[in-house]
Simulated assay, not measured.
Amino acid sequence: MGLLGATVLLSGCGASSAKAGASASAGTKVVIAQAFQSLLYLPLYVAMDKGYFASEGLQVSKVTSNSGANAVASVISGSAQFSLQDPMIATLSDIKGASVVPVAAVVNGVPVWIVGHQRGAFSNLAGQNIATAIPPSTSTYLLQRALKQKHMKANLEFVELGTEAAPVLAGKAQYGVVYEPTVEEAVAQGLKVVYSFAHQYQSDYAFSSIDTSRAFIAKHPRVVQEFVDGIDKSLQYIAQHPQGTIQIAIKEFPTLPPSVVKAGVLRMIRDKVYATSPVITPSEFHNALQLQEFLGNIRPGQVSYADIVNTKFARNAK
Score class of each variant (00 low, 15 high):
residue 127 G to P: 14
residue 111 P to D: 09
residue 73 A to L: 06
residue 133 A to M: 11
residue 159 V to P: 09
residue 95 I to E: 05
residue 135 P to C: 06
residue 95 I to H: 03
residue 87 P to M: 07
residue 104 A to C: 14
residue 140 T to Y: 05
residue 138 T to R: 09
residue 146 A to W: 07
residue 136 P to D: 12
residue 103 V to F: 02
residue 69 A to M: 14
residue 129 N to C: 00
residue 143 L to R: 12
residue 127 G to T: 13
residue 156 L to Y: 06
residue 71 A to F: 00
residue 62 K to N: 14
residue 158 F to A: 08
residue 82 F to T: 09
residue 71 A to P: 04
residue 159 V to N: 01
residue 151 H to Y: 13
residue 89 I to C: 01
residue 74 S to N: 04
residue 100 V to S: 02
residue 103 V to Y: 04
residue 103 V to L: 00
residue 144 Q to V: 06
residue 112 V to F: 10
residue 91 T to H: 08
residue 111 P to W: 00
residue 124 N to L: 11
residue 112 V to M: 04
residue 131 A to L: 09
residue 136 P to N: 15
residue 109 G to A: 03
residue 127 G to I: 08
residue 100 V to Q: 02
residue 128 Q to R: 14
residue 82 F to I: 11
residue 122 F to L: 11
residue 62 K to Q: 14
residue 96 K to Q: 13
residue 118 Q to D: 12
residue 114 I to W: 07
residue 77 S to F: 06
residue 96 K to P: 12
residue 150 K to E: 08
residue 104 A to L: 13
residue 82 F to N: 05
residue 80 A to M: 07
residue 154 A to C: 02
residue 134 I to E: 03
residue 154 A to H: 09
residue 89 I to T: 09
residue 99 S to K: 13
residue 128 Q to F: 03
residue 142 L to Q: 08
residue 155 N to I: 13
residue 66 N to Q: 15
residue 66 N to P: 10
residue 106 V to S: 09
residue 94 D to S: 07
residue 112 V to T: 12
residue 98 A to T: 02
residue 98 A to D: 10
residue 157 E to G: 11
residue 152 M to W: 06
residue 152 M to Y: 12
residue 141 Y to I: 00
residue 87 P to F: 01
residue 158 F to M: 06
residue 124 N to W: 10
residue 154 A to V: 05
residue 111 P to Q: 06
residue 100 V to R: 09
residue 115 V to M: 00
residue 128 Q to G: 11
residue 109 G to L: 02
residue 69 A to G: 12
residue 82 F to E: 03
residue 71 A to N: 11
residue 126 A to S: 13
residue 75 V to C: 09
residue 92 L to K: 13
residue 162 G to C: 11
residue 116 G to P: 02
residue 66 N to E: 14
residue 62 K to T: 15
residue 160 E to Y: 07
